[in-house]
């Protein structure tokens, strides 16, 4: 893992949803690659991180999956955002923004009150 950051619990779900919203249906490998790229290669996703997150999202109904052919003609399972997933993404985004905004206030250099 050397300099690659661990993915925070819970944030990976948001990344997956957001990525699926941006690029549309995608298979596991594609998703992993895309998330790694977007993070500026700061993140690295192995099996054990990615697939449990995908299964959980699917069980909760936020993403759906079906088998299809990849760009280089391999049978692959494609994930896509469901309606509930879109809603979830909006809500989670808003929450995340609020959380980071609050944290930013705490972590900002102290100002005189």
């Amino acid at each position: 893992m050397d300099d690659k950051a661990d993915v925070w619990q819970g944030t990976l779900a948001l990344m997956v949803l957001r990525t699926l919203e941006t690029i549309g249906p995608q298979h596991g490998y594609g998703l992993a690659r895309r998330i790694e790229q977007t993070s500026g290669d700061k993140l690295q996703l192995n099996y054990g991180t990615l697939y449990p997150a995908l299964l959980k999202l699917e069980q909760e109904g936020f993403i759906g999956s079906k088998w299809g052919m990849s760009e280089n003609n391999r049978r692959a399972k494609f994930y896509e955002l469901t309606k509930a997933g879109k809603k979830r993404l909006q809500k989670a985004t808003a929450e995340w923004e609020q959380t980071t905004a609050i944290l930013a206030r705490f972590l900002a250099p102290a100002e005189e009150a």
Binding site: H27, Y29, Y47, Y51, E58, Q59, S70, R74, R75, K77
Partner: peptide
């Protein structure tokens, strides 16, 4: 989620195969 997991208990063999295929594809890509 609980419901799907209950179903999952019944359809276990099928999804095991699915997962193997999926991981295989990932590795191949």
């Amino acid at each position: 989620g609980i419901w799907i997991r209950l179903l999952g208990s019944l359809r276990r063999r099928n999804s095991e195969q699915d997962l193997s295929d999926e991981l295989e594809t990932h590795l191949a890509l």
